[in-house]
């Protein structure tokens, strides 16, 4: 009897489950995850299956839906490009240079993450409206920002600021200075060193930050709708169209648009995972 118990203990230890609580914590994890995340998301796809392919297609290919999707994806892409370029400028200044207020500027990079989106929305609108601090001079120059697609672009740039900076920053800090010194001592110009030696090493992080900023901007709602103007076919983003269809009780339309957006988001996550694996294998190769 004694021997049997000992044997069971040894085999349990051999399974490396020496710590208790696996069953309990795994149970809690799966139960909560199912109730809060998996079942609700699955419900969206089940609702979509109630639509015939023709219905689905006619919703997605209607002019208003197409325009909203084009606007959301197009402007999010443009904003992510700006975030990539300005993100690199800012992260370079923060990591490589010393200037007054550097630590404060480093800290406020996270404001777009931390500030509730509705607050960002009303603040950007007040700033860029025709009587706003920036809107008034811009209007004088003939540029109207608030209540136009340009306003949506501004809000999307705001919401995407932290991504490229925060993904590139740790990589740039950890970069081995000897590589640059070697390149310089071998006669490479500074621009050559930066573009051929440093930037390739940062590329996976840059692309990850770019993809994250794009994904965030596509789905963004709160900071965009105040400044957007929300004119159908002109300045109406896809998430807003979902809300409008819901308020009209056109659930099928809302669901179809949501599924398209969700599938694109999943494709982006897949891409980011591949990027991160790519950067890890590059790290090993170094």
């Amino acid at each position: 009897m004694f021997l049997v118990t000992r044997g069971a203990e040894v085999s349990a230890a051999a399974q490396r489950r020496t710590l208790p609580g696996f069953g309990l914590t795994m149970g809690v994890t799966l139960t909560l995850l199912s109730i809060i995340v998996i079942i609700p998301l699955a419900g969206l796809f089940i609702k979509t299956l109630e639509l015939s392919p023709n219905q689905f297609w006619s919703i997605i290919s209607s002019t208003r839906t197409l325009n909203a999707l084009k606007l959301s994806f197009g402007l999010a892409l443009a904003a992510a490009v700006v975030n990539l370029f300005m993100g690199m400028v800012i992260v370079w200044a923060l990591v490589r240079y010393r200037f007054p207020g550097r630590r404060i500027f480093d800290a406020i990079v996270d404001i777009p993450f931390a500030l509730p989106t509705a607050v960002a929305g009303v603040a950007l609108t007040a700033l860029f409206a025709q009587n706003g601090w920036l809107g008034a001079p811009l209007a004088g120059a003939g540029i109207k920002v608030a209540f136009t697609p340009l306003g949506i672009f501004v809000a999307m740039v705001f919401i995407g600021i932290p991504f490229v900076i925060r993904t590139v920053q740790p990589v740039l800090i950890d970069l081995d200075p000897e590589i640059e010194e070697a390149a310089a001592s071998l006669g490479a110009s500074r621009w050559h060193t930066v573009s051929k030696v440093i930037l390739p090493g940062l590329l996976p992080a840059m692309l990850t930050g770019f993809a994250l900023a794009f994904a965030r901007a596509v789905g963004e709602f709160g900071s965009v709708i105040f400044i957007a103007g929300n004119l159908p076919n002109v300045s109406e983003i896809a998430p807003l169209l979902i809300v409008i269809r819901l308020s009209e009780f056109r659930y099928a339309d809302a669901t179809a648009i949501a599924v398209v957006m969700l599938l694109v988001s999943f494709a982006i996550i897949f891409l980011i995972n591949r990027l991160q694996r790519w950067s890890q294998t590059r790290g090993i190769a170094h």
Binding site: V37, I38, L41, G43, Y251, F266
Partner: peptide, 26 residues
């Protein structure tokens, strides 16, 4: 799966609950 909510548009995060628990929901 745990990271999934981070990549879902806020509007869709609300929509899924309307589709589940709303008057016309499952």
């Amino acid at each position: 799966l745990i990271d999934l909510p981070f990549s879902v548009s806020p509007v869709i995060s609300g929509l899924v609950f309307v589709l589940l628990f709303g008057a016309q929901g499952l």
